[in-house]
Design a protein around this nucleic acid. Structure first.
Length: 195
DNA sequence: GTCGCGATTTGCT
DNA sequence: GCAAATCGCGACA
């Protein structure tokens, strides 16, 4: 059994957590295989309460209430009428913040079927993560569905820092992080529209 | 109550 | 390259 991430991990600021999550592992229960799929975290984005692009920006209303709960919880939201996105809640109780998981690399896959986990909507689809089944699960504790565990620590030189994808405000915040040269990265710099 | 749009992905032109 | 798919939430009436 792998070690969980320590409690202090989730007491760090959101930006630090977003970077530190790279290389850590995510255990996701596969109902069909009756086993956990294990993935390495490849790409993340940070969102904080003061950030206009964050759902918590307008306060603890609607779906954003989850963001103000205890750090380490899952925040799963439904977007574009058809996709879900997985985040982990950050910041102390009463403060809103989260880290979005944008890409994973499957490192143990009991079903041996192809898992498309390069993209926030795709990874939720591949791992059967939905708001109804996974929102507010404690990712910092072992549970039957979804949790985080220690993987490897990535040296700073292997982390690429860039701006976030798909938002219309705060587009200049360098709050997206991914593993350099990793094939699972959802969008490479080359593919991005020039400003 | 109604309107517009979003932390995306896919398929067609 | 671009638009469609499709629904929850915030803004406004």
């Amino acid at each position: 059994m792998k070690n969980l991430l320590p409690n202090y991990f989730f007491e760090q600021d959101t930006l630090t957590i977003a970077k530190s999550l790279l290389g850590q592992h995510l255990f996701s229960w596969d109902e069909k295989a009756q086993a956990f799929i294990i993935c390495r975290i490849i790409e993340t984005e940070a969102y904080t309460q003061e950030d206009p692009a964050c759902h918590a920006y307008k306060g603890p209303t609607g779906r954003a209430k989850t963001l103000f709960k205890a750090p380490g919880l899952a925040y799963v939201y439904f977007i574009y009428g058809m996709y879900h996105c997985l985040n982990v809640v950050t910041e102390p109780l009463g403060t809103g913040g989260a880290v979005l998981f944008r890409a994973l690399e499957p490192i143990y896959n009991p079903t041996e079927q192809e898992l498309k986990t390069n993209g926030p909507g795709r990874l939720c689809k591949a791992l059967n993560i939905t708001k109804a089944t996974h929102n507010e699960l404690p990712l910092n504790q072992i549970n039957p569905q979804l949790y985080l565990a220690q993987g490897e620590n990535i040296p700073a030189k292997d982390i690429v820092t860039t701006t976030r994808i798909g938002i219309s405000v705060a587009q200049d915040y360098p709050w997206r992080f991914y593993l350099k040269d990793n094939p699972w990265v959802s969008v490479t710099e080359k593919q991005r529209k020039p400003k």
